[in-house]
């Protein structure tokens, strides 16, 4: 096995294992920490595809900002393993059945998909480098890019509006 393959299997195992740990951890803080490890493993995959920009942005935005806010809320609310509400047996069973159904549908859908014949470009591809990515975003995909930025802006304005105290209340 080449080094690339060893790294690929290691990162895949890490990503899947820590993703499972997110779900089965009792303590919410542990779940968040496992999720951060999952993001790192996924960033490692991006690095292997030579998509350096996406890899580092994944770390900055998800692991560095969003997960900090998650952790923030969980720590402030002081959620512990003891205070976590325990679902009853039937709820758990229903969860397993519906999750299994979803898995079945996804396997059935992806079984015939055209991914088997395609090989990924390992290390050699350069679309993920910041220069090529910027060029693609601002020429070929400029309209969806701008529309999504407007979406983000409206979300930000909405958040400020909700977070703001009522003008009458303040006076």
């Amino acid at each position: 096995m080449s080094i690339t393959q060893v790294l690929f299997f290691f990162l895949s195992a890490l990503a899947l294992g820590s993703a499972v740990m997110v779900v089965i951890s009792r303590n919410p803080v542990h779940s968040v920490l496992w999720l951060i490890i999952t993001f790192f493993a996924i960033s490692g995959h991006y690095f292997m595809l030579n998509a350096q920009f996406i890899a580092i942005v994944n770390i900055i935005v998800y692991a560095g900002a969003i997960m900090v806010l998650f952790l923030f809320v969980i720590m402030l609310m002081n959620l512990n393993a003891e205070t976590e509400p325990q679902k009853n047996k039937w709820m758990k069973l229903a969860g397993v059945v519906s999750g299994g159904c979803l898995l079945l549908v996804m396997v059935a859908a992806l079984k015939e998909a055209e991914v088997k014949g395609q090989t990924t470009e390992m290390v050699t591809g350069n679309i993920g480098l910041i220069k090529n990515l910027g060029q693609a975003l601002f020429t070929q995909y400029v309209v969806p890019f701008e529309i999504s930025s407007v979406l983000f802006l409206s979300a930000m304005v909405g958040t400020v509006l909700i977070g703001k105290k009522d003008a009458k209340e303040q006076n």
Partner: peptide, 21 residues
């Protein structure tokens, strides 16, 4: 690396976990 400045930024944003944890 190609993303030198962003690497610094990413590591800095990780630094907060030491304090929080």
């Amino acid at each position: 690396i190609n993303i030198g400045v962003l690497f610094i930024f990413g590591v800095v944003s990780m630094g907060v976990y030491g304090i929080m944890i």
